[in-house]
Nucleic acid binder design. Structure first.
Lengths: 337, 337
DNA sequence: ATAGGCTGTCGAAGCGCTTCGACACGAACT
DNA sequence: AGTTCGTGTCGAAGCGCTTCGACAGCCTAT
C-alpha cells in the first residue's frame, strides 16, 4: 500500500505539498506539481479513503436508499439507481446502496457514523417516518418522490398531477368520453406513496373540466388480475373507450385481453401508459405514453445534492414536466359523430 | 458528534475499554460492559466509519459492480443487488454501488483506496478485462457469472448448461421433435457474457441425445423483432412445436404473436421461459419456466465473500441447480401418434 | 533601499479509532 | 508463604490523511 508520505519522499517534497497537489487547495508551482504527479503515477498511489474521511470529515459517499420490495416499477428504480451512481461518480462521489429494510435506523446509522456525506431517498411515503430525522440532521438529503409536507426538504419528482391531466386532455381531444384508469396495486395506495393519488387527482380534475367520465380501478399486475378488473370495468361502463394504465405489469395483459375480446387498439379503444419509453416501444402495440424520466430524476437528485454539499443550493421542490408521446395505441373515437 | 472518548469518560473507563466492549476482542466484566453500553445508549454514540477504517484497515464495505446497460434482465440484476445489500447488512457490511462504466479502473480505485474490503462483480464476460486485476490483488472477490478461466476465482452462477438440458428434456418428454430457441439479443452473444452460450450448448447436446432438432435464433426484445424472428423460424421449420425463450422481453410478444396466428398454447405449441418466477406467473399464460434464482445468487455471493473475509472460504465455483416448474404453457404434442 | 504583499513550501497537530504490551489483582496452585 | 496463571483494565502508539500557521524568497510600490 503506497502512502502519501512515500509519494512525497519519491518526489522530494513534503507530505502536505502532495496533499495540496491532490486537492488543489493551495497553489503549487508547475514544476513541483508535475514532479508529484509523476511520482503518483509511477508508484500507483491511491489515497486511502478512511484516512481521508477521518481527516477531512468528508467521505465523498452519497447514500441511496432504495425500496426493498420489488413489486413495482423495478426498471424505473434500477434506472434511477444507475443514473444516481453515474452522476455521482462524475462529481467525485461514490454511492452506498441501502435498502429500505432498516428504515429510519439506516438514516441514524449513516448520519451518525459519517459513512456518507448525504443521502437520497426513494419511494417516499406521504408521511414518511424518516422525514423527521432528515429535518433534524444537518446532513443534506434529497427525496425522489413527494411527501405531504415538503417544508425544509428538497424533492425531485415527476409532476404526476400534470401527468394525469395530460392523459385526460389527450383522450378528450380524441373525442373519448368514458375513460378508465388502471391504477397501481391496492398495496401502493395503502402505503400512501402519493404518486398514484397525484396522478389520479390531476386526471380527475382535468377530466371534470373537459366533461369526461372517469372510472378508477387499482389493479395488481398480471393477466388474471387484469382480466377481472377489465371485466368489472366494461360491466359498469360498457361505453368505455379510453384507458390510462399506470401499472407497468398490467399493460401487456390489458392489450392481450382487448385483442382477445375483439376490441382493436386504437380503432375501438385507446390506451395511454404511464411508463418508461423503453416499455412503451417494446409493447405489442407501440404505446402512446407519458414517460417516467427515471434517468433525469436520478441525475437531478444528485446535482441538487452536490450543490448543497458545495454550499449553494437551497431546499426546493423540483417537479419535472411530463411529456406525452403519441404512438400507435391512441386514436379518435370511432363510430361517433 | 459523540466520540469514543466521550463515551469512555461518561462511563468512567478508558477509551480502549469501550473499544473492546464494542468489538468483543477482549473479555470485559459484566458490570463494565453494562455501564459502557448504557453510556453508548444515552449519548447516542455511533462509531466514526472513517476512523474505524483507518485504524483497522477494514471498511466493512463490499463493492458491487453492476452493469451499466439496462438492456437485459433488469429485474434479475435488481433482485441480485437487493439480495446482496440485504445479506451484506445481515453480516455487518454495507454495499457500495459501482457501475460497470469505469471498467477495470473501478477495481483499481476500490482496492487501492481501501474503500471496500471485497467486491462482487456482475455481468462477467468470458474473458473479462477485470479478471487479471482480481487475481493479482489479495482483496477477496466473487463473480456472479462464469468466465472462461475460473482458476483462482470464486464464482456463483446458475448452471445454465443444465438449464438448457432441462428444457430439452421436458420438451422431448412431451413428444416435441422440432424446437426453437429464442435467444438473447445479438449484442449479448457478441459481448461473450457466456450464460447464453452455455444454455444453448447444454440444450443442444441434450437435444442431440434425445433426437430433437434445434433451431437457435438470437432476438432483440420487443414485438417487431419477435415477429420477424418468429416468421423466419416457421419459414425454416414449419413443424416447430416447442419454444425455449431466454429473452424476457421477447416472452410476451411471442405469446401475443402465437395467439394472433391461431396457434394455441399449450395445445399447438409449447413455450418454456428461462426467467424469474415472478415473470413466469405474471405472463398472459402461466409459463412453464426454469427459474433464475436471483436472490439466491446474491445471497450466496455475499456468503462466500464473508467467509473469505473471515479467513475460511477457498476459491470455488458454485453452480446452482436449475429447477423447472411446469405451468400452463407446455403440453404434449397434439395430432401426433 | 525598505516595507509590504504574494507565492510556494514545510512542519506539526490532530481527526477518532484499534490494538499491543503492561500491569494490577485475586484465585489456584505448590 | 510464594509462585503462577488468567482476567480485566489502561496508556500509548500509531493508522494516512488534511489543514493551519509559519516562513523563506521574490516582486512591487514607495
Amino acid at each position: 500500500m503506497v502512502t502519501l508520505a512515500e509519494v512525497a519522499q519519491h518526489a522530494g517534497v513534503s507530505a502536505s505539498t502532495v496533499s495540496y497537489v491532490l486537492s488543489g487547495k493551495r497553489s503549487i508551482s508547475v514544476g513541483t506539481r508535475q514532479r508529484v504527479e509523476r511520482s503518483i503515477q509511477e508508484l500507483g498511489y491511491h489515497p486511502n479513503a478512511g484516512a481521508r474521511a477521518l481527516a477531512s470529515s468528508r467521505s465523498n459517499i452519497i447514500a441511496l436508499m432504495v425500496p426493498l420490495r420489488t413489486d413495482m416499477y423495478v426498471p424505473v428504480m434500477m434506472e434511477i439507481a444507475i443514473a444516481v451512481a453515474t452522476t455521482a461518480r462524475a462529481h467525485g462521489y461514490d454511492v452506498l446502496l441501502l435498502t429500505g429494510e432498516e428504515g429510519p435506523d439506516a438514516v441514524r446509522r449513516v448520519t451518525g457514523s459519517g459513512l456518507a456525506d448525504a443521502m437520497i431517498l426513494m419511494d417516499v411515503e406521504l408521511d414518511d417516518e424518516r422525514l423527521p430525522l432528515l429535518r433534524q440532521t444537518d446532513q443534506p438529503s434529497v427525496l425522489i418522490g413527494l411527501p405531504a409536507d415538503t417544508s425544509g426538504l428538497t424533492c425531485v419528482d415527476l409532476d404526476f398531477g400534470a401527468t394525469g391531466a395530460l392523459c385526460a386532455e389527450h383522450l378528450a381531444a380524441l373525442g373519448h368520453r368514458d375513460i378508465a384508469v388502471i391504477g397501481e396495486a391496492p398495496a401502493v395506495y395503502e402505503r400512501h406513496t402519493g404518486f398514484a393519488e397525484r396522478t389520479l387527482d390531476g386526471l380527475r380534475s382535468r377530466a371534470r373540466e373537459l366533461g369526461l367520465r372517469v372510472l378508477h380501478r387499482p389493479c395488481e399486475g398480471g393477466y388474471d388480475a387484469m382480466a377481472a378488473t377489465l371485466a368489472r370495468i366494461f360491466d359498469e361502463r360498457p361505453g368505455t373507450t379510453g384507458f390510462v394504465v399506470q401499472n407497468e405489469s398490467a399493460v401487456e395483459p390489458l392489450l392481450a385481453l382487448l385483442r382477445q375480446q375483439g376490441r382493436a387498439v386504437p380503432e375501438d379503444v385507446s390506451v395511454i401508459a404511464v411508463c418508461p419509453d423503453q416499455v412503451a416501444v417494446q409493447a405489442s402495440v407501440r404505446l402512446t405514453s407519458v414517460a417516467i424520466p427515471a434517468h433525469e430524476m436520478g441525475r437531478r437528485a444528485v446535482e441538487r445534492l452536490v450543490a448543497k454539499l458545495d454550499g449553494h443550493g437551497k431546499d426546493e421542490v423540483v417537479l419535472l414536466t411530463p411529456e406525452l408521446t403519441v404512438r400507435s395505441s391512441t386514436g379518435p373515437v370511432s363510430g361517433g359523430s
